[in-house]
């Protein structure tokens, strides 16, 4: 289904931000995501404290940090679920979110969940294509509560993909999965990202996951960027190569851990 879909922007506009939707058969490059001077307070503590960050179009950025470092708050701001007090955010028109829990509507069949919010006329066909991409087409008429954890998360991924996002926001989407399923999901997300070429922001606790998936790792500390690390490893990536270990040590160090402690 990846087969280039010229004019895809036409069918998608209006679902989120009609004013900024691209128009015309030739897709223009989506704008980069830019965040400048973002401040968000919960009570007296500033969770985001003048944060600047860029997510260039088509790049995969992993966002790391300890609990309370503001990772999720940043993602929620980009998703439009949270409003910052100060700062400027420039976003591409089409964004989609995959949450840690699948968050499917249990009263809608899998394909209806994927198609929710799409224009009616070809919603089922588009949902089926997206489900085929995540290898879940055979379950499209199932009820969500009958899915396994991995299947449900793939349905959540399909629901994001079908919107053909310029920016895919991933909020610890693999954290609740078992180790084997997590590896398969990571491979799937990598493949989908390569095929579609959208920008992606992955919030994660897992240093290895960031190193396997992302072009950039960003470590948040007290609401600001603590470390920005390009990951120039060739893909497909493997654990345990020397270059991998060096980057791993660097990331763990900025999170306040030594590689031995994390082993």
């Amino acid at each position: 289904m990846a087969a280039g879909r010229p004019g895809r922007a036409l069918t998608m506009d209006g679902s989120w931000d009609a004013g900024a939707a691209r128009i015309g058969p030739v897709a223009q490059p989506a704008p980069d995501t830019k965040v400048r001077g973002l401040v968000r307070r919960f009570g007296p503590t500033a969770v985001l404290d003048g944060l600047d960050i860029d997510i260039p179009a088509g790049r995969f950025v992993a966002l790391l940090g300890r609990s309370g470092s503001g990772k999720t708050t940043l993602l929620r701001t980009l998703a439009g679920l949270d409003t910052a007090e100060q700062g400027e955010v420039i976003l591409p028109p089409k964004r989609a979110v995959v949450f840690q829990e699948p968050r499917l509507m249990p009263w809608k069949r899998v394909w209806e969940n994927v198609a929710l919010g799409l224009p009616d006329h070809d919603a089922r066909d588009r949902a089926e294509l997206a489900l085929r991409e995540v290898e879940l087409a055979h379950r499209m008429d199932a009820w969500p509560l009958t899915l396994s954890g991995g299947e449900a998360q793939r349905a959540g991924l399909a629901r994001a993909l079908v919107r053909d996002p310029d920016l895919l926001l991933l909020d610890e989407p693999f954290a609740a999965l078992d180790a084997l399923t997590r590896l398969r999901m990571q491979a799937l997300v990598t493949a989908l990202w390569k095929r579609h070429g959208m920008a992606a922001l992955l919030v994660t606790h897992d240093v290895d996951e960031a190193l396997l998936l992302a072009d950039h790792a960003v470590v948040l500390q007290r609401g600001q960027i603590g470390l920005q690390l390009p990951i120039d490893l060739p893909r497909p990536r493997r654990h345990g190569t020397p270059a991998f270990a060096v980057l791993r040590g660097e990331l763990l160090g900025s999170l306040g851990l030594s590689a031995e402690e994390a082993a």
Partner: peptide, 23 residues
């Protein structure tokens, strides 16, 4: 959490009531 999903999917208030709240 499902109400949030509806927001990210761009559902209107009527859509939110129909697809999420009432079911």
């Amino acid at each position: 959490k499902l109400v949030e999903v509806a927001a990210t999917l761009g559902l209107s208030r009527a859509g939110l009531i129909r697809h999420v709240v009432l079911p």
